[in-house]
Write a protein that binds this DNA or RNA. Structure first.
Lengths: 191, 191
DNA sequence: TACGGTGATGAGACCAAGTCCCATCACTTT
DNA sequence: AAAGTGATGGGACTTGGTCTCATCACCGTA
């Protein structure tokens, strides 16, 4: 355990989120975040790779859940079914507490280039993870890439929808993914 | 004109690319790039927003060409046809000289997180640009997003294919986009 | 030829991000 | 009680990036 208070990591996240909302991301120094959390700059960088990462914790866990679900999907399942399973598999991470500061987090990210950059990288990470997992099932390269990209798209739209409407994320994800598939169908029929 | 030699920007790009290849991106300081180009740190940052950007010049021009092509596509064209036109419209930027150091550039980007991050942001930028342009044509939100995402996917694969095979980028783009559409068809038929 | 204007550059101070190393403290184990 | 472990504090250091001011090349005009 650390010394003094526990939950250093969580305290840093909260302090960062609050300060970013109050003053903006670029006007907030790491030392200031650490200070509000009762810690120091050194400790901040022990918990997070860089200043951006404080807003993107647990994304690797998400990627793991996704690839796990794709690998574990029944052999008869098609690529799109496997991707849908990947989205549904992340349901456990969508807690009430996460929903509570979700909008605040999204607003901060939207307001800063560095953060949108990091967000984009995380999404690419998801796409790569799912593409690889699909290829391991024997799905051809390009089909795997397309299916994964559609999955990421649905994941993002689903996340925003979940923040607005609440409820079970698995439900929302299934509905959103179905909408995406419908959109694909419309595109095909359009010409 | 600047003082002394002309083409400061190009010299900086070349120096950066070479140094990154020789020593790696993180082991190269901006001051060093500037020095090899016969300039100073100040001048570097006058030409490029940050150290990463030296490898991503002209991406905004690409986005402009894409949205222009989508806006200018015939009214009867479907979203996918418009996106294909967007890819083809970028052909003018794919010069021999760009093809010459393309692989070197890709290798450097692949080897560094910051650069892959910037690359991801640029791709998201393309997707957003194309999505907006499609929406302005009356394409529903989700269909526009899917079509744009497929376009970016094809653009990336097309770029790599073009680096390998050479030839006219418009040709390569059309073929790649057709492959992507075929992959989408396979996914649909898969279940 | 001389002059002033313009735009790109050089130079250096300055701040914050991120790295590194070492000392310190709380807590556990023996 | 002593040794070990893991997280923390603290400070030096490098570098990315900003800002300001002086400088120089070039261009047009008188």
């Amino acid at each position: 355990m650390g010394r003094w208070e526990p939950d250093a990591r969580e305290r840093l996240v909260r302090a960062a989120l609050d300060l970013f909302s109050e003053q903006g991301y670029e006007n907030t120094a790491v030392a200031q975040i650490a200070e509000r959390a009762g810690l120091t700059k050194s400790t901040f960088f022990r918990h997070f790779r860089d200043k951006r990462e404080v807003l993107f914790g647990g994304q690797d866990v998400l990627a793991g859940l996704m690839t796990g679900a794709i690998s574990g999907a029944p052999a008869e399942a098609g690529p799109l079914e496997a991707v849908e399973a990947a989205l549904v598999a992340t349901v456990g991470t969508f807690t009430d507490e996460r929903r509570a500061h979700g909008p605040q987090r999204l607003a901060v990210i939207a307001g800063n280039d560095e953060l949108r950059e990091r967000s984009a990288l995380k999404m690419v990470g998801f796409a790569v993870s799912m593409t690889d997992a699909l290829k391991r099932r024997g799905v051809p390269e390009l089909e795997a890439a397309v299916a994964a990209e559609l999955g990421v798209l649905a994941f993002n739209h689903g996340y925003e929808r979940w923040l607005e409407t609440g409820g079970d994320f698995a439900e929302v994800a299934r509905r959103t993914f179905s909408d995406v598939r419908a959109a694909v169908g419309s595109l095909e029929r359009a010409e």
